[in-house]
Design a protein around this nucleic acid. Structure first.
Lengths: 232, 232
DNA sequence: ACAAAAGTGTTGAACGTACACCCATGC
DNA sequence: GCATGGGTGTACGTTCAACACTTTTGT
């Protein structure tokens, strides 16, 4: 411990990053939480996160914390909002830059090792009580996800690279919380031209196997530079 | 000066707020800038802003800085993004929570006094070179404004309380950077039901006077709670 | 009387929505 | 052969885009 190692003319707040990580399993949209093993809020669930180091950017800090606390890597990560009210941490003035992330569970089983031993997924519509103001951060992230999914193609981030149209439809239905018409939705999503039909079908299903598609990131980047707007 | 007054176990970044303030005059969409009178970047133009104090929230800090540096008060203010790359300030690790603001120039002449003596408005499509990474912050704010104006009724914040439909149309044309069809646009904006036609007309114009309207904030709050989406 | 901006409707094309049946496969 | 989800088209209503002239007022 380096007591008093750093001195400043003016007092400075602490800066942390917290991450709201979403994933889909067969039933639900889920959020990842960590059980705290130190006070304050010892034993309560909280968003993964921690202090920003002096030599790393905010996004680097968010990715590092995710790696250390949950074992997750290479996921969609975007800045959400910065929470800086006085008194949101009982110990000290803390400013938290929140990020939200999307992962597909197939590629990313949460490591049960090391720091991750207390990480778990919870359904977004029935989360446990959260430490600090993390419920506010979580609800902000959920609202952002629901808004953003409608005009940016981020639903794909919750699926493996190859997926069926029905799987993609279910992603949208779960995030938006309502059912979509199968025929209309297929017409719409295919008309964007952003899905590549593969010469592959599902394996190991006990009914007619569906065609697999993948999202054409290249084409999306081209189109969005030219002012194209993805909309569902 | 309190040298070494505050000590920490771990080194902490400095936290500042910067504001991108937009206004419309007769010609252009404008942004407010401050000329720096200290190094680094002495003499260059920069966004108004400064350090967050320990006993104020981020939004309070942004409002305080605006008041001190530009004399502006009671304006639309919303958090934009947090910039925290290493090396964005040559002196120290600085994390900046950026806000953007909209004002109507009629009610808010920029005070020429005290700290504001070096504040000035610049057209958004021809700004001077900016200090630090403020050009990046400014461009982020402009993009956000252009995106947000399409699905949230913030265009009104750039106008006085009572305005004509043509004035409102010009706000949207200037922000979006393209012309709108007068008849189609009027139909659309009136169909939202969010404009209250007043029993008043323009004064002191040398042609037929237009009817005045005001935005129905109450009704908008009601509708948006019920899931209504404003769209232009 | 002229200049300047206000105000107003119609039509055709594109898009969104509602809706039901046959198909392929595994068991 | 039956259960399971895959895959497909049409008709109707709504919305969007293009387009030009008359009205009011001040000078």
């Amino acid at each position: 411990m380096l007591k008093g190692a750093f001195t400043y003319e003016y007092e400075r707040p602490a800066v942390t990053v917290d991450c709201v990580v979403f994933a889909l399993d067969q039933e639900d949209l889920k959020v990842m939480l960590i059980q705290r093993d130190l006070p304050p809020f010892q034993g309560m669930w909280a968003l993964p996160g921690g202090f920003v180091q002096m030599q790393e950017s905010l996004e680097e800090a968010a990715m590092r914390e995710l790696r250390e606390e949950t074992g997750l890597e290479r996921l969609f990560l975007e800045q959400l909002y910065t929470f800086g009210d006085v008194g949101r941490d009982p110990r000290d003035r803390v400013i938290t830059v929140a990020y939200y992330a999307l992962v597909n569970l197939e590629g990313h089983a949460v490591r049960a090792s090391s720091d991750a031993r207390r990480a778990a997924w919870f359904p977004v519509d029935d989360p446990p009580p959260l430490a600090f103001d993390h419920e506010k951060i979580f609800r902000t992230a959920l609202k952002r996800l629901q808004g953003k999914v409608r005009y940016e193609p981020i639903g794909f981030e919750l699926l493996p690279e190859k997926f069926t149209l029905t799987e993609l439809q279910k992603v949208y239905e779960r995030i938006l919380g309502r059912d979509l018409d199968k025929r209309n939705w297929r017409k719409k999503i295919l008309k964007t031209g952003l899905l590549l039909a593969l010469d592959e079908i599902q394996q190991d299903v006990s009914h007619r196997a569906a065609r697999l598609y993948r999202f054409d990131h290249r084409k999306y980047r081209q189109l969005s530079k030219k002012g194209f707007l993805f909309e569902i």
